[in-house]
C-alpha cells in the first residue's frame, strides 16, 4: 500500500527493557519488558493492576519511567511528553473517544495538526480545508472505511464509525506504532468485527499495532503475538499459534506457572 513501512515486517520497532514505575509506595511496573514488531499486531494483556496502562502510558510519552529503557528501532529514546512520541510516529487510540462530535471527519483527522494554506494566508493561520478533506478521504479509503458524509459533524455517525475515525486518525499519523486501548470495549458484535478488520488493515500498512484488550477472543482473532503482564512484569511472550482462551487466562492469572501468586507491593 502507499505508506512506506517503517521497517520490514517483523523488525522490532518498539521495545521496553526493565521498566519500573513507582507511584509513591506503589510499584506499578517492576522490570517490565515489551516488544512490538513492524507489521504485526501485538496484544498486551494482563489482569487489572498488572501494569498494562502504566506501561502504555510510558511507551506513549504520558509518563516517564522510574528506571529502564525504551528503544525505538533499536535505539534508546526518552519522551518528555506525548508530543515527543507523536513526533517519532507513535499514536494512541484511547478507550474513551478522543474525537470532537461537533466537527467533521476531516477536522477530526487533522485535530491539532491542521493543514494551512500556502503563502501569506497560511502564515496568518488560514486553514487548507480542501487538502485536509482530500487527505482524510485518502486515509479512509486506504483503510476501507466508508463514511456516509464527509462534511457532517461526526455526532451523526454511529459509535462504531466514530471509533473508526479515531482509529484512522491514529493510523494516518503513526509512522511506527499505534496503541489501541480497548478499542472494542464500547462496541457491539458487528462493530467489533469491523474494528478488528480495521486493526488488521492498519497492521498490513507496516506499522506495529499494540492492542490492549480484556477480550481474549478479540486477542486470539487478531494478534500475531501476545505479551502477558502480571504484577508489573512480562511473564510471557507468545506467538499466536494454537493458543486458546484458557491458555491466556492461565498466563494472566498465574494458574499455569510457578510464580507465587501473592507478591507484595503491587496495586492498581
Amino acid at each position: 500500500m502507499s505508506i512506506a513501512p517503517a521497517g520490514s515486517k517483523g523488525d522490532a520497532i518498539l521495545q521496553a527493557r526493565g521498566i519500573t514505575k513507582r507511584f509513591g509506595h506503589v510499584e506499578a511496573l517492576r522490570g517490565a519488558d515489551f516488544d512490538a514488531h513492524a507489521g504485526e499486531v501485538t496484544a498486551l494483556i494482563g489482569d487489572n493492576g498488572a501494569g498494562k496502562s502504566t506501561l502504555v502510558k510510558i511507551l506513549s510519552g504520558v509518563y516517564g519511567a522510574t528506571s529502564g529503557q525504551v528503544l525505538v528501532d533499536g535505539g534508546p529514546v526518552s519522551f518528555a511528553s506525548p508530543s515527543d512520541a507523536h513526533a517519532i510516529g507513535i499514536e494512541t487510540v484511547y478507550q474513551d473517544l478522543s474525537v470532537c462530535p461537533d466537527l467533521s471527519p476531516s477536522a477530526n483527522m487533522f485535530m491539532g495538526r491542521e493543514a494551512l494554506r500556502p503563502g501569506l494566508l497560511g502564515r496568518l493561520g488560514f486553514l487548507d480545508n480542501p487538502t485536509m478533506r482530500r487527505e482524510s478521504a485518502v486515509a479512509f479509503q486506504r483503510l476501507k472505511v466508508a463514511l456516509k458524509d464527509m462534511d457532517a459533524p461526526i455526532s451523526s455517525l454511529s459509535g462504531g464509525q466514530r471509533q473508526s475515525v479515531a482509529i484512522c486518525r491514529a493510523a494516518m499519523w503513526a509512522k511506527r506504532v499505534v496503541f489501541m486501548d480497548e478499542p472494542t470495549a464500547a462496541l457491539g458484535v458487528v462493530q467489533t468485527a469491523r474494528t478488528l478488520d480495521l486493526v488488521r488493515r492498519i497492521r498490513d500498512t507496516g506499522v506495529a499495532v499494540v492492542l490492549i484488550s480484556h477480550n481474549m477472543r478479540d486477542v486470539i482473532q487478531v494478534a500475531d503475538t501476545v505479551e502477558v503482564l502480571r504484577l508489573g512484569r512480562r511473564i510471557a511472550s507468545m506467538r499466536n499459534q494454537g493458543i486458546t482462551v484458557p491458555d491466556l487466562v492461565g498466563a494472566m492469572t498465574g494458574a499455569l506457572d510457578t510464580v507465587p501468586e501473592s507478591e507484595p507491593g503491587v496495586a492498581a
Binding site: 476501507k144 472505511v145 456516509k148 454511529s158 464509525q161 467489533t192 469491523r194 474494528t195
Partner: peptide, 15 residues
C-alpha cells in the same frame, strides 16, 4: 442502530 464501524468498500475507488 446499524453499526457500520468500517464497511469494507466493495471497490475502494468507488468509495
Amino acid at each position: 442502530m446499524s453499526g457500520d464501524a468500517a464497511i469494507p468498500g466493495p471497490a475502494g475507488t468507488a468509495d
